[in-house]
């Protein structure tokens, strides 16, 4: 059991760091996709399509096992954070982009009529409204991210899944071990679902 808890810590670490990277990437790429410069949009599009179009597991293997041939050696943890972060960042950038586009044009126009600068309009008018739209899908991605971290056990990172498998190999109590692992993943994900729901309620105060 203590061994399993060590795995939980690694899973949480990995999730938090990958989520932060994903969030940053999502915002950068989301805004870049709205850029007026075609080249910025193009590069971002390539990034998004590469990570969306290939398997997450293969990406992990590729970075961990292939990159060393080019002289780039990353630890299992680094690989996990990088690949998961870039991968989910690519998906989530679509959410950022589309929720900004979903805010009616009249809001921007009202801002212009009040002589607000473009950045002020984005920060105080568009984003606060877009947040509300992006929150549920971003929450979904976050929960999916937690569960996807199990894949890093395959590149030897000692996360929850890896530790579970190790214990199983020693004890052979397959039913108990994997059921426990299942429950722990649920216990990690469910509070997040609740937290996101509460945040959503708070953000929508007075609006519905």
């Amino acid at each position: 059991m203590p061994f399993l808890l060590k795995g939980v810590v690694v899973t949480i670490e990995l999730t938090v760091m990958a989520a932060i990277l994903a969030f940053i990437m999502a915002f950068i790429a989301g805004f870049a996709r709205l850029s007026k410069f075609a080249i910025v949009r193009g590069i971002t599009q390539i990034y998004v399509e590469i990570f969306r179009g290939t398997s997450l597991l293969v990406q992990l293997f590729w970075v961990y096992f292939v990159l060393p041939f080019f002289g780039i050696e990353l630890s299992a943890m680094m690989t996990g954070v990088l690949v998961l972060g870039l991968n989910y960042g690519a998906y989530a950038s679509e959410v950022i982009r589309s929720s900004i586009l979903a805010i009616p044009k009249g809001q921007t126009e009202a801002g212009i009529a009040l002589n607000m600068s473009p950045s002020l309009i984005m920060k105080r008018i568009i984003l606060p409204q877009a947040m509300l739209i992006m929150l549920p899908p971003l929450g979904n991605y976050l929960i999916e991210l937690i569960k996807s971290t199990a894949l890093v056990s395959l590149i030897t990172l000692h996360d929850l899944m890896f530790c579970g498998t190790m214990i199983n190999n020693v004890t052979m109590r397959t039913i108990e071990v994997y059921s426990l692992v299942l429950i722990i993943y649920f216990l990690l994900a469910y509070p997040l679902t609740l937290a996101i729901r509460r945040l959503e309620k708070r953000l929508s105060a007075g609006r519905l």
């Binding site: 009616p104 009249g106 809001q107 126009e109 009202a110 009529a113 009040l114 002589n115 607000m116 600068s117 002020l120 105080r124 008018i125 606060p128 409204q129 509300l132 007075g206 609006r207």
Partner: peptide
Amino acid sequence: VGMIFQQFNLFPHMTMLRNVTEAPIHV
């Protein structure tokens, strides 16, 4: 120049008071 729109275009995430104070404060 100022403008009033057909669809009002108030900021839905702000109270009436904040709708009116937003630009004076930040602009």
